[in-house]
Design a protein around this nucleic acid. Structure first.
Lengths: 247, 247
DNA sequence: GCCCCGGATTAACGTGCGTTAGTCACCGTG
DNA sequence: CACGGTGACTAACGCACGTTAATCCGGGGC
């Protein structure tokens, strides 16, 4: 009943017991498990369901004809894989598991009836889409303007805070089950250069990265170096239009 | 009554006479005009209204502390400037006019009552947000993987098709009121390099760019060179979940 | 008609990052 | 315990692109 999706949405709005119950039930009806590096959905597919990440890491990616690959988003527990399904028939990108993952499958109709009974859940779903957009905009800034070091530092800040929002951090550490190749595909850098820059980040004490564990000894300093400002993540309950109708 | 917003939404769903009427009325209630290069909203502001572009070009942009600037989206007639207002209090980026623009201002409440009376308009609004997300994802790919020439070619394809969708092209030509500096800020390139690459595009006959008019003699060829595939724009009426309940 | 100014263009030079290609460390497997 | 495989790491070299700075051009104001 305590699942990361609810934890995620509660960062935005307060949910009633009934809403949580309905959501938890919908998300436990059908569960799909995949191994690391398996594809969840590939570009061109016509998904019938919406997938939510319950456990593990996944990513969105696009591939160009000549093989170049760009990871366009990381998905951690609590994230929605494919809200697009609500408006588009066909996937315009692929979804891949990075680690072994557990997904909840909710049918389009199921999700729709959920949002039709609860305006608050509807708002929450819109909110997740807008946050996804805000994150994507920030990635645009990273790839367009930030140096390699800033890009990686920025990404680490983002991932750490997103994981913390769903209770998946331990002090100033979190898991980071990504290869240097993955980091390169996400930041638009070669794996070789990712390696070089990681050394610098390590040697300057900004991060500790060993095994699959990332530690950020001084988050404020890493944020400063990476020109990171957390507002775009909208992690605090700012209150959108819903609150206008509420006490 | 025939305004670009309706033209835009009709690319996704068929609207009833009443819905169009209500939308057109809401969009004509309050109109705001700005000169070229003026700011519409700046980061940190707390907008009370949602803005729609009726005429002219605008852009979203973010600025880093040291002055680096990234344009994260171009807005043309029919586009929604700030759907965020529905969920976030504070702007996490700025909006600027590129040319003189005419905007429709709709209050949060006004928009909400519009979407509450018509589920179809609600769906259409969700659709515009998802398209914005899809476009942002494609920009991520461009900045991460495409070469300078591909980036510019890709951008030209995108803008041309988006303008065509709202009836703002003339044969294989359209307006392009952007400076080479703007193009650089959008593609993550220096204005000098934008200039170099434009020469190549011109000399190879892929584009004609003179005055503020862009002509694409052979769109298919430009698409090929830029690794452009139009699916991410979702310009065709694919039918989302709404159609499931319809004849 | 002249001035002024933003934008386009060009040139010379520098560099951050990619590419290629190799070695090394680790881990699960038979 | 040898093995194969994957990911981390290193080194040498090259290029796409940035930086700086100068010149050119066209349009609007008076």
């Amino acid at each position: 009943m305590d699942n990361p999706i609810i934890r995620r949405l509660e960062g935005f709005t307060r949910l009633s017991r009934d809403e949580k119950q309905a959501l938890a039930e919908a998300a436990s009806q059908r569960v799909r498990r995949l191994g690391a590096r398996e594809d969840i959905l590939v570009e061109g597919e016509l998904p019938r369901d919406v997938h939510l990440v319950l456990d593990g890491w996944a990513c969105r990616y696009k591939t160009l004809e000549d093989g170049r690959r760009q990871i366009i988003a990381f998905l951690v527990p609590g994230d929605t894989c494919d809200p697009h399904t609500l408006a588009f028939r066909e996937m315009d990108h692929s979804l891949g598991a990075l680690t072994a993952v557990t997904l909840a499958e909710i049918s389009r109709e199921g999700l729709q009836s959920l949002t039709e009974t609860s305006p608050r859940l509807r708002q929450a779903l819109v909110w997740t889409m807008l946050v996804a957009l805000a994150v994507q905009q920030e990635w645009t800034v990273s790839l367009g303007q930030r140096t390699a070091l800033e890009r990686l530092g920025h990404l680490f800040c983002e991932l750490f805070l997103r994981l913390r929002a769903v209770g998946l951090t331990d002090g100033n550490s979190c898991e980071l089950p990504l290869t240097q190749g993955d980091l390169g595909d996400a930041t638009g850098l070669s794996n070789v250069h990712v390696n070089r820059v990681l050394q610098v980040l390590r040697n300057s004490g900004l991060i500790i990265l060993k095994g699959r564990i990332l530690t950020i000894p001084d988050l404020a300093r890493l944020q400063e170096v990476s020109l990171f400002s957390a507002t775009y993540l909208h992690l605090d309950r700012e209150g959108g239009s819903l609150d206008a109708n509420e006490p």
